[in-house]
Amino acid sequence: MTTIDDHADLLSGEQVRLSEAGARDFFELLKPRVMSLVVFTAFAGLLLAPGQINPFIAAIAILCIAVGAGASGALNMWYDADIDAVMSRTARRPIPDGRILPQEALAFGLTLSTFSVAILGLVVNWFAAGLLAFTIFFYAVVYTMWLKRSTPQNIVIGGASGAFPPMIGWACVTGGVSLDSVLLFLIIFLWTPAHFWALALFKMRDYGAVGIPMMPNVAGEGSTKNQILVYAVLTAACGVSPALTGLVGWGYGVFAAVLGIVFVGCSIAVRQMPDGDEKMLPAKRMFAYSVVYLFAIFTALILAHYAGPLLDRLAGAA
């Protein structure tokens, strides 16, 4: 039976050749599905921020954030190649699958990190660039190299890295942060544990096989389900908060409340799921809905930001 150590020896052994990886393999290193969420929430932060930004500069800013997010993904895959090789969900990633060599992924990630931060600083502003650099460092070093393998709170603390993009987008326009940008951060930060612990429930065996201390493996299914419910409630409440601060109108608030109620309902269904349930259907449904929830929340924020003033003008004209 092949062990993690066997894969680690293979992946870390001396390589004297370059792989024959194509562009598609390197693109896969960027974690494009995760990148799409990062880009979208960063774009939302940029659009919601007060002030103006040149469209060309805005496009460069979003591109730099996307490249920085991809760099984080490449560095994560480089460091996690040993456990990725064992887990069924990740075994076909480019490094464990043998399509890309570890040192190629490392060089790729470091190069993209450097260029994305430098260009964002030179073209947009250095505050936003500093936030992007910190986000890459937090995900690649603090989360991937430290928290992920050392504490069941890995997702809670490490989730901050995925919550920074709207703040970076906001900072690209304003050169700083504000209460509203912090609320955008908190929506994602509070959403992350419920989202990932739902996944961890039906991937417990994979995480257990590689020794990653995910919450279900350490605290048990019951405790994890209770915590998912708590974070779902907090996420639903925070999701409505932009209407309370005046960032958007109450039409958004009502819509966000409905989305949040469904999110909490999914978490209640997970909590009622028997321990040891082989199918884990409620957890799978919650994981799927959580992605829909986040995209819907940020889409609604963008629409409300632009539709609100338009509706006010139409009402005034009438």
Rank of each mutant, 00 (worst) to 15 (best):
D5G: 08
D5H: 13
A8R: 15
A8E: 12
D9R: 15
S12Y: 11
E14F: 14
V16G: 12
E20I: 08
E20R: 14
E20K: 15
A23R: 09
P32H: 06
R33S: 06
V34M: 11
L37G: 13
L48F: 07
G51W: 12
I53Q: 00
N54H: 15
I57A: 08
I60T: 12
L63G: 03
G70Y: 13
G73T: 09
L75C: 08
Y79A: 14
A81K: 14
D82Y: 08
A85T: 11
V86Y: 01
R89L: 07
R92I: 06
I95E: 03
D97Y: 13
G98E: 04
P102C: 02
E104Q: 14
L112R: 02
L112S: 03
S116W: 13
V117D: 01
I119G: 00
F127T: 11
A128M: 09
L132E: 09
A133F: 15
T135L: 04
I136R: 00
W146F: 15
R149Q: 13
R149G: 04
S150N: 14
G158R: 07
M167V: 15
G175C: 04
V177I: 15
V182C: 05
L183W: 13
A194N: 02
F196H: 10
A198G: 13
K203R: 15
G211T: 07
M215L: 15
G220F: 09
G220A: 02
K225W: 10
I228R: 04
V230P: 01
C238A: 14
G239K: 06
V240A: 05
G253P: 08
V254S: 02
L259F: 09
L259T: 08
I268A: 03
I268T: 02
V270E: 00
R271W: 12
D277V: 11
E278L: 14
K279L: 14
L281G: 00
M286A: 06
Y289Q: 07
S290A: 14
F298W: 09
L301G: 06
Y306C: 00
P309K: 04
L311D: 00
L311R: 03
D312S: 12
R313P: 00
L314H: 05
L314Y: 12
G316F: 13
